[in-house]
Design a protein around this nucleic acid. Structure first.
Lengths: 161, 161
DNA sequence: CCGAATCTTGACTGATTCACTCCGGATTGA
DNA sequence: TCAATCCGGAGTGAATCAGTCAAGATTCGG
């Protein structure tokens, strides 16, 4: 199981706009060149990000793309869902293993595993914002996530231990 | 992102053996028929489970497959890794987005996200054992996982709250 | 108002993966 | 010996992936 290049490119583009987009819209071609990504494909990804409301586009000569909102308000989950369509797909619906077995009326002890997994994945990806990836580099982000995911919303937990 | 049918079939087969395998080895064809799975494909999956040491096989006329160890000692992660090869693949190695960018010497703030996600996924799938899926049905398993995943190994936490 | 730069949409394509099937063989019990 | 089973690997059609390409719409500078 893996994410396709679209999620990766989507994050790279969003991150690029968060870094360099303050001065005004960045052209897709320029972004692709700077990030060393295939130009036409980059345009396609940016289109998806726009359709999802993550970036806005300006047409015309000095047009390009900008973040639609603050980087703190854009999660990795937003970008992944925009580019891949979903974070973790439950097979029961789109790729059922036999119509009967995967019907919701049929009792299946495996199904809760996939739902739990999806919840877990979404929780993590939703916690991580584009702003978190902007500074601190790889080491900084690693430390940040380490803290974040031991938290689960109970802020006293770490201190009490 | 999703798991292929192999993970699903792998779980179904392992679960089948946990349920009905006590009396002796179950033939692949018989299992496929009872579980309504494609016969040849089922054999292939069982082969992978055997190669991973999850099941053992007995050849000859009344041969078949049995669990290699107690169902409590087999996690969903074991089965997924056996059938799919891995739980969550980090693209940086197998599907790098440009050799330079994904080189380990290059600082990449996105990489920690994928590593954190893999850790999360593995944690959950490792906690859930085949024995957990045997009884209680879909509702029972859902409740069990709900409890399990709020635990994170700190057993006092739930009580103290 | 023309043309260059840009975004927009959708069709198209080669490579890979998925979800199987098929076949020839090895092993074992009756 | 023979039938039932497992074993290993090759083969196959369909879907998905990772892009490309072409034709059009929009905007700005001159």
């Amino acid at each position: 199981m893996r994410f396709t290049t679209q999620a990766e490119y989507g994050l790279i583009c969003t991150l690029h706009l968060a870094r360099f987009g303050a001065a005004g819209p960045v052209a897709a071609r320029e972004m692709a060149e700077k990030e060393d990504l295939p130009a036409d494909y980059t345009e396609k990804i940016l289109r998806r990000l726009r359709q999802a409301g993550i970036v806005t586009s300006v047409r015309g000569v000095s047009g390009g793309f900008e973040l639609a909102r603050d980087a703190r308000e854009i999660s990795v989950k937003d970008v992944v869902e925009a580019t891949e369509g979903s974070t973790f797909e439950i097979n029961c619906r789109q790729h059922p293993v036999g119509a009967e077995r995967c019907d919701t009326t049929h009792d299946c002890s495996i199904r809760p595993v996939w739902y739990a997994l999806r919840t877990k994945i979404d929780e993590l990806l939703d916690q991580i914002r584009i702003s978190d990836l902007l500074e601190g580099g790889e080491v900084g982000v690693t430390e940040l996530i380490d803290i974040t995911w031991q938290d689960h919303g109970d802020t006293n937990l770490t201190m009490e231990r």
